[in-house]
Design a binder for these strands. Sequence first.
RNA 1: UGGGGUGUAGCCAAGCGGUAAGGCACGGGACUUUGACUCCCGCAUUCGCAGGUUCAAAUCCUGCCAUCCCAGCCA
Length: 566
Amino acid sequence: MNGVTPSEETYTGNEISHFILDEIRKDLGPGGPMEGRKVHTRFPPEPNGFLHIGHAKAIVIDFGTAEILGGLCNLRMDDTNPVKEDERFVRAIKEDIHWLGYDWEDRFYHASDFFEDMYLYAEELIGKDLAFVCEQTPAEVREYRGSLTSPGKESPWRTRPREESLDLFRRMRAGEFPDGRYTLRAKIDMASGNMNMRDPVIYRIQHETHHQTGDAWCIYPMYDFAHPIEDAMEGVTHSLCSLEFEDHRPLFDWVVSNLSLPSRPRQIEFARLDINYTVMSKRKLKALVDEKLVDGWDDPRLPTLSGLRRRGYTPRAIRDFCERNGVSKVNSMVDIRFLEHCLREDLNDRAPRAMAVLDPVRLTITNYPEDREEAFTVENLPGQPDHGTHDITFSRHLLIEREDFMEDPPAKYHRLYPGNHVRLRGAYIIRCTGCVKDEEGRITEVLAEYDPETRGGSAREGQKVRGTIHWLDEKTALPATVRLFDHLFTVEAPDSDERDYHELLNPDSITVIEDAFVEPWLKEDPSYIGYQFMRLGYFIHDSQETTEDRLVFNRSVKLKDSYKPE
RNA sequence: UGGGGUGUAGCCAAGCGGUAAGGCACGGGACUUUGACUCCCGCAUUCGCAGGUUCAAAUCCUGCCAUCCCAGCCA
């Protein structure tokens, strides 16, 4: 079913090109600063939540770059803040990346693997008089930092002798002080226009148990200090990250050039992926989960990778989507319909076809004997016999979609209405003769006559049948639950809407149909990429709800539909 | 009154001094045992705006405008 199956995807080697690849090629090429080296990247998530499709873009860029240029890409948990991180997220992250089809081989790291190195590098900085132990309170630090438009003031501790700083720093590590008592700060420039350069804190005291290092440490490095060191220790040549780190680059470079690191990584930034009608911030996704507004991190309406997987998205579709969106530095919002297009494109070629009826009404073939029944063999993938066949049964009483019959249809309606010929896909061509209604006028049964000459659904010589509809044999149809989804939010950009996101939730984001029917074949032959229910869309067994005696399907995406009632 | 980015169609996005790729969406048509798929056709005289340089500018220069990010002991 749609659990995590090892990805069968193999990179096909499209000639992808974008500015990051160009820059890297220059760096590694003749005359470049890293001439002769092989590219080495890393994907560095913080294990404090589940991965979403925005991360998929970063993964495709990080791992994809290594793949394209014949280098390596590491996976690294950026776990420098013990209060926010958890081992449970580490497992989910690894699972999602593997599912996407990428592998880090034996290069799985934690930032915490380098805590000892970082500590030593911090001492190096103190020794060079480039860092000092500060005892300002958070409020004082804020006050002294100045504002965006005015310079900051130097901390009174800035001139503390290096020997004293070193002693204090060692005692910080030894656990002699409570949280917040001291910090280690880089000595850069309190008047810099770049706030990140105003003597940033690089170590803080936190008496917290870390999910990897336990209680070995009570001081933890800050991102800006830790990240370049992690990259250098792993031999990363290019540290690719998103745009909001652009003004951290001077600090990244400062760290890299003031320390005796084993290598000098280069940071390059790209724009994050954003998609309309959904949210991409970890904070909001977490809130949706915590407030039970959705059914967990893998709710099929969520843009999380686990949600998309449960929804029926394929790794191939997601990677294709990320690659085709390109890489640039423009903040952009991609239309969700493009993602849907990529899924349809993938599934169209390989998802077996089946029939299902979501809103059933009985269709009686009045000239087909009550006691007769027959079977038709249909191809799983029309036109591609190597994908196999399966049988469908036919009898006097069938089930069709209620909307496929109209007593008084508008022009260009090609389905059932009195007098019209329609093909029952794979079976026969029938002529509608009328319908039966109950006292309230509701249609309870559609009536038609079949043409025995059209067995298999082929028309008579010269006969043109405009409409083909799907159907099920009432006798063999299997009851099933089908869940249909719509956008989780009613507005295109919920993240930047001034209203509270609770007000923007789409009350109809999920529709559960308990009385749908499907072909019995679907119980015997669960396709892990799901099915196309003809004329309805692509569906997949729900990995959580499907049980031995109850089939539950999620609609991954609708089919395109150019029918416009006039 | 600071620093760093970015502006090419409804949405992404190529383009890097020689006269606006491609995809999505949209509209029209053909085909069709899925109103799907596939296939045709259409869709920016113009690149945020205004000047300038040049035989020639989306590409170079100047100015302006718009928009995003930054004042965590988060990442």
